[in-house]
């Protein structure tokens, strides 16, 4: 299973691209994905928060990921 992860705001600056593709075998859960990305990009761990969205909803760490999911990293929001 491979995954595509969209990056917004400061996470795009940290990683240097708007979309990461993780080839198989990709992390199976939200928690495992965050752990892998923080390992590859330690600056992600310095953010106030970094959530993962799956199909436009905030996802818990134990949520399973699938190739067809729309996945995004969500750094601290600042609208309004």
């Amino acid at each position: 299973m491979s995954l595509k992860i969209a990056l917004y705001g400061i996470t795009r600056d940290i990683v240097g691209t708007a979309l990461i593709e993780l080839p198989a075998p990709a992390p199976a859960t939200v928690g495992a994905l965050l752990e892998e990305l923080r390992r590859q990009y330690p600056a992600l761990g310095q953010l106030r928060s970094c959530a993962v969205a799956v199909n436009n909803e905030y996802a818990a760490n134990d949520q399973a990921l699938h190739t067809v999911d729309e996945i995004a990293l969500i750094p601290p929001v600042a609208g309004g």
Partner: peptide, 22 residues
Amino acid sequence: KQVVTIWKHEEYEDGTEWVAAH
């Protein structure tokens, strides 16, 4: 302000910053 996925990038005289990121 807590949940909607919009990010603010401010431009100052001496640099820029993603608001609330750190």
